[in-house]
């Protein structure tokens, strides 16, 4: 097992497979703890964590908050909509003001790619990236890989297709890095306008045909169509997107195998995935949410030891 001096979790890029396995082993134990009658540990009782959300979030924020509370940490919640950021305060000033109140760790979501890296270089605190623009969302990728491992036993040699808006998706990028590190093969699938031009450099397969991609894969991760990032029109209509890239029962029934269906949430039901598929036995969407708390507890617990 690799014991480095990991102080921040800024992205999956830079992590090793061994570090990810350590996170998974720890998360397995937290998952057990979360089944026990008392779901708390006092492990981080002397740690204060600030959750800085400069962008909307429900799932990730609640998941981090619950993970922190289960670990006994003190927490501060901050959202840009109700703060002095609106009055023109810079990111470093905002964060340094919060840190002067003796905060040990910062969990941050920010619309600017690289914001967490910038913060890590400029403030004295441990930073955990909860999504920075279109760059990375490491804890989502970790919980996705962890959920596949729990469902299929391992990631080695598994074929995973990520479907949808790859261009604007931090989840896709972090997933590509983590899945490849753990030995899975990755394909991205979507309209050409939503696939980044240089995606081949990441060593992934590309398909523009969902039926072909589904026939190839063991796992399909359906991404949300991010209407808030569609500043240009990337496809003619939502209806057309659903017809070509929406996952429904007809498509699944055509396969001669069962595949595992994932979605990072929030779901646009009837757009990228039909309700019937989202609620089917092949879907592990709710397990992803449950695993998310355990994986985030593991990340916080291991980072608090300043060694991973």
């Amino acid at each position: 097992m690799n014991q480095g001096e990991l102080n921040h979790l800024l992205g999956i890029k830079g992590l090793t497979a061994s570090q990810i396995h350590t996170i998974f082993d720890t998360a397995d134990n937290f998952l057990n703890l979360l089944q026990a009658p008392v779901k708390k540990t006092p492990a981080l009782r002397d740690i204060t964590i600030a959750n800085l959300f400069f962008e909307n979030s429900t799932r990730t924020r609640v998941s981090f908050e619950l993970a922190e509370k289960r670990l006994g940490a003190d927490i501060i919640n901050f959202s840009s909509s109700s703060s002095s950021v609106k009055k023109g305060e810079t990111l470093i000033d905002t964060v340094n003001n919060i840190l002067s109140m003796k905060v040990d760790m910062i969990v941050m979501r920010h619309p600017a790619p690289g914001a967490c890296m910038f913060l890590a270089k400029n403030v004295k605190s441990q930073i955990i990236n909860a999504g920075d623009g279109t760059h990375e969302h490491p804890t989502q990728a970790l919980l996705d890989a962890f959920s596949i491992k729990n469902r299929l036993g391992s990631l080695e040699g598994k074929k995973v297709v990520i479907v949808g808006d790859i261009k604007h998706s931090r989840v896709a990028l972090s997933n590509i890095y983590s899945l490849q590190l753990l030995g899975a093969e990755v394909m991205v699938c979507g309209p050409a306008t939503l696939i980044p031009k240089y995606i081949n450099q990441l060593g992934v397969k590309v398909s523009h045909n969902l039926d072909e991609a589904l026939a190839w894969c063991d796992v399909a991760n359906m991404l949300r169509i991010q209407l808030e990032r569609q500043d240009q029109r990337f496809f003619p209509s939502l209806n057309e997107y659903t017809n070509l890239y929406g996952l429904n029962m007809n498509r699944l029934n055509k396969l001669d195998k069962e595949i595992c269906i994932m979605h990072p949430g929030p779901i646009n039901r009837g757009v990228e995935i039909s309700s019937e598929v989202a609620d089917s036995n092949q879907s592990i969407i709710l397990q992803q949410v449950e695993n998310g708390v355990a994986v985030r507890m593991a990340v916080l617990f291991l980072l608090a030891q300043h060694k991973l």
């Binding site: 097992m1 014991q3 350590t22 082993d25 720890t26 397995d28 134990n29 937290f30 057990n32 703890l33 540990t41 006092p42 492990a43 981080l44 002397d46 740690i47 617990f301 291991l302 608090a304 030891q305 300043h306 060694k307 991973l308």
Partner: peptide, 16 residues
């Protein structure tokens, strides 16, 4: 998870 020395040096990985 119930140790009193988390974050005080050492690296503790849980067993099941």
């Amino acid at each position: 998870f119930f140790r009193d020395d988390i974050g005080r040096g050492g690296f503790h990985i849980p067993k099941p």
